[in-house]
């Protein structure tokens, strides 16, 4: 899962980004509105954390321009706590609204929630065949037996599970599990998928040659 954080306060940006990384997300950072808009418009992020008061282009303007083209889930993070502000934020296209100061645990929960909802799932538990994937605790069981996955493997499985029965291209997988600072080779995706197959069973993930992977469930 790849997330963009747009925040002008360097300390807050660093803390939020690190916290997200530790939770297993690939994180891109932007410290002003125009940089944030460029990135948000270029990549298909799984979620965007957006500050309202930003230099160069404020968060609401960014959101308005982004919504012309993309429906990426956006969590608005701001110190503006007036009800009218929340209404403006949500009406301009934000999926959720969190007022500063906030707890990182709540922030992570809300990020999970907007990603899950944008993929059309109501709960954190996603069942695929014998597998039960818990997006909250990042655990997976096969017929009740826990399976241990690495963060990258879990991220690939989560992506495939949220788009199950649909072909997910290798590029999409690559874009969603590595952040902009990663310059890993693209065949790393194949390595991770093959490791994943060994752990959860070969027949679940099908390879469509020249198209990508598909998770049947």
């Amino acid at each position: 899962m790849r997330i963009l954080v747009v925040e002008d306060d360097p300390i807050l940006l660093d803390s939020v980004a690190q916290s997200l990384r530790e939770a297993g997300y690939a994180v891109d950072e932007a410290n002003n509105g125009s940089d944030g808009f460029f990135k948000a418009n270029t990549w298909d992020y799984d979620a965007i954390l957006l500050d309202w008061m930003l230099p160069e282009m404020n968060g609401i303007e960014l959101l308005r321009k982004l919504r012309i083209k993309k429906s990426t889930p956006v969590l608005l993070l701001t110190a503006r706590d007036a009800v009218s502000d929340r209404v403006i934020g949500l009406d301009q296209g934000a999926d959720d609204y969190l007022v500063k100061p906030y707890s990182l645990i709540e922030l992570l929960a809300r990020v999970r929630s907007i990603i899950r909802r944008s993929a059309g799932h109501g709960t954190n538990q996603v069942a695929v065949g014998p597998l039960v994937i818990d997006l909250g605790s990042k655990t997976i069981t096969s017929d009740g037996i826990p399976i241990v996955l690495t963060a990258r493997e879990f991220a690939i499985l989560e992506l495939l599970a949220l788009h199950r029965n649909k072909v997910v291209s290798r590029t999409t997988i690559y874009d969603h599990i590595f952040d902009e600072d990663d310059d890993s080779l693209s065949n790393l995706v194949d390595v991770h998928v093959s490791n994943l197959r060994k752990k959860i069973g070969k027949e679940l993930i099908e390879t469509r040659r020249g198209q990508g992977y598909i998770l049947h469930g």
Partner: peptide, 23 residues
């Protein structure tokens, strides 16, 4: 509104960084 914004931003940073450090 401005004063609360200006106070909330460093406070948010303070809380986030301590929460992260203690995690």
């Amino acid at each position: 509104a401005d004063a609360s914004h200006e106070l909330r931003t460093p406070l948010a940073g303070l809380l986030a960084t301590t929460e992260l450090a203690l995690a």
